[in-house]
Design a protein around this nucleic acid. Structure first.
Lengths: 204, 204
DNA sequence: CTTTAAGTGGGTCAACTGTCCCAGACGAGC
DNA sequence: GCTCGTCTGGGACAGTTGACCCACTTAAAG
């Protein structure tokens, strides 16, 4: 009802689209479902956005921009060892997934859809570059408080971290086996600690 | 044109559906696209299968049944160490993905779709149970030729293996970075070797 | 050969999709 | 207070979808 400039409507639509996708899936995110979520009329959609495809691009941008690891950094310094830091970080990440599984699933659906859509095929690469950058940031943040060096290049280890996080999420979404996921995290933490050179040994 | 019993048509439709999904994505796998691929008339579809949803269930069953690790087993005995075996196995798996990316993407799309569809929500759990079983089989196959024991329960390690394979695939599908994927495999192989207790040391 | 049921094809349906159009309402600048 | 461009609402469009129906052909059983 109120008069809102098109640029504001555009971001509001992207946010609404994300809500719909997380709740009901990408296939259910029709233009009508999106404007309903945003409380707009259908005409506002194409006034604010040229096409649905372009809005999905906005959604990915939004999601990539919002996804942060800021909450994880304090955890790292609190941990007594690299292994413990890795365990806490992965556990916190999985908890985040559990808290809103639809959101994480939305990301996968968006990625898969973008890979199939000619106009969006460049998005997944950007998306994962961002993930890897976040992981690099996280590994760097873990470096100082633990006085450690990594035995392998940080970008490589970052990619492994993203790999584990993705795989962990996928399997948990499929079988919702909390205990099994926790055991996977234990092993992954061991593995990551393997690549750390801890100058100061800390006992458990 | 030829007369074919409904049961045979059903599996033919499932195979055709998989081809379409791998080539054009799940969204493009309409009943019409599937019967076109199978060379049937639209009416045959609902004569052989109650609904599209039921056919998708067949497709997942098909895919889960076909996916084998048989080709990987010989690789394991040829490797000189656990690390090498893990490296070869993951590399072979990734090569398999590279050879037909659409097929692997189809699996992800099917999983995501099943998670969103009430009538198919039980499928992903079965699917991943099968993956984990395959990974267990693979780890067992690696045990004898290398005279080794695993420091952790095989099912736990199997889940980590599937996790890495999934994450590896997802990232590669997104950015197609062969070199980066190869480096991830190196690290993952190190990690897996960490959990092996090799009784007979073999030099490179 | 005849009967019977299985299998086939074409046409059709209602529902839903993304997109567009147009008449009108509103607010900012003169 | 008038005007002009920005924004809004409802309606409509063509295309596509999953499902279905009915009249037909064919193979097998008696």
């Amino acid at each position: 009802m109120p008069r809102i400039p098109a640029t504001e409507r555009r971001v509001a639509l992207a946010r609404a689209a994300l809500v719909v996708i997380a709740r009901d899936g990408l296939a259910a995110a029709t233009t009508r479902a999106i404007v309903a979520e945003a409380g707009m009329s259908l005409a506002s959609f194409h006034y604010a956005v040229p096409s649905r495809e372009e809005l999905l691009r906005d959604v990915v941008d939004l999601v990539v921009a919002e996804e942060g690891t800021a909450a994880l950094v304090p955890l790292l310094s609190r941990a007594g060892s690299v292994r413990e830091a890795a365990r806490l970080a992965l556990t916190a990440y999985l908890d985040h997934v559990k808290q809103d599984p639809g959101h994480e699933q939305a990301m996968f659906e968006l990625t898969q859809h973008a890979l199939r859509t000619p106009g969006l095929r460049d998005l997944p690469a950007e998306q994962y570059e961002r993930y890897h950058a976040l992981a690099i940031h996280l590994l760097n943040a873990a470096t100082s408080p633990h006085h450690l060096e990594w035995r392998v290049p940080i970008p490589d280890l970052a990619r492994l971290l993203v790999t584990v996080a993705d795989g962990l999420t996928l399997a948990w979404l499929a079988d919702r086996d909390d205990a099994a996921a926790a055991r996977t995290i234990e092993l992954a933490a061991d593995a990551i600690a393997l690549f750390a050179d801890e100058h100061v040994a800390v006992s458990a």
